[in-house]
């Protein structure tokens, strides 16, 4: 049986080099690969292009890689929660490509599905359409304009799952799923960190979210802080 298990984040990311493009799963701080981000900070690789929906907060998530100025360019849909990000972007230190969230997800998916481009109506008539091919299609009985967007090309996809097995099958939990399955499919090398690593055969094949074929390296994270960005509650 194929065995994808590596010891830890350091081993999983051993060949990440300066100026590479990385995809990182998560929505806000939910479902982010905490152990891999910590390992990238420790490793000190620089000039990274990071594709991730958000950029963490100042002292957690991708915010940690921004503090150390290891990121050259961010490709995200929303960055509102991070003062250091906004500062680096407005001062021009950090290159930022803001793209619609659905476009981001679908460009990841296209990479994993082996499709070079997608057409989406998101952003037609706005500044993000500048320089992009626009085509008219009739769909659901309505003709309208669609923007052509390319599948992402990334050196590594780094995702976080709840459970994984030794052959790389992944199961996510609740909304920590978000971009992780799309990105897992889209990396030239996909690294998955999981809260629980189990022997092959223990996960129900009917319940697998990401088939192991997409995952190259898997390990159980040492610890998970799982920080909550906005703790909202109601009284009993």
């Amino acid at each position: 049986m194929i065995n994808k298990v590596v010891k830890n984040a350091d081993e999983a990311l051993k060949d990440v080099k300066d100026n590479m493009t990385l995809m990182l799963g998560g929505f806000g701080l939910c479902g982010i690969p905490e152990n891999c981000i910590a390992a990238l900070v420790k490793k000190g690789v620089k000039g990274l292009t990071c594709i991730s929906n958000n950029a963490g907060v100042d002292d957690f998530g991708l915010g940690l890689l921004l503090q150390t100025k290891q990121i050259k360019k961010m490709i995200s849909s929303y960055v509102g929660e991070n003062a250091e990000f906004e500062r680096q972007m407005l001062s021009g230190e950090l290159e930022v490509d803001l793209i619609p969230q659905g476009t981001l997800a679908t460009r990841c998916m296209a990479a994993g599905y082996g499709m070079p481009v997608i057409f989406t109506p998101a952003g037609v008539g706005t500044e993000i359409a500048q320089g992009k091919e626009v085509r008219k299609f009739k769909f659901n009985g309505v003709e309208k304009d669609y923007l052509m967007e390319h599948a992402f090309d990334s050196d590594f996809a780094i995702v976080k799952a709840w459970k994984g097995d030794t052959v790389g099958n992944l199961v996510y939990r609740s909304t920590a799923r978000n971009f992780n399955p799309m990105m897992a499919m889209a990396g030239k090398i996909t690294v998955a960190e999981v809260e629980h690593l189990v022997p092959a055969g223990e996960l129900d094949p009917d319940h697998i979210h990401t088939p192991g074929i997409y995952v190259h390296r898997i390990f159980q994270g040492e610890k998970y802080e799982k920080r909550i960005e906005q703790r909202t509650v109601r009284k009993r």
Binding site: T175, I228, R236
Partner: peptide, 26 residues
């Protein structure tokens, strides 16, 4: 971010870091 059938905020002490809405609220 991936929910249909979203409910209200959790009771105090029942927050789940894996379960948030698009505004990142539990």
């Amino acid at each position: 971010n991936g929910i249909l059938g979203m409910g209200p905020f959790p009771f105090e002490g029942e927050e789940d870091a894996d379960l948030i809405n698009a505004g990142k609220q539990t």
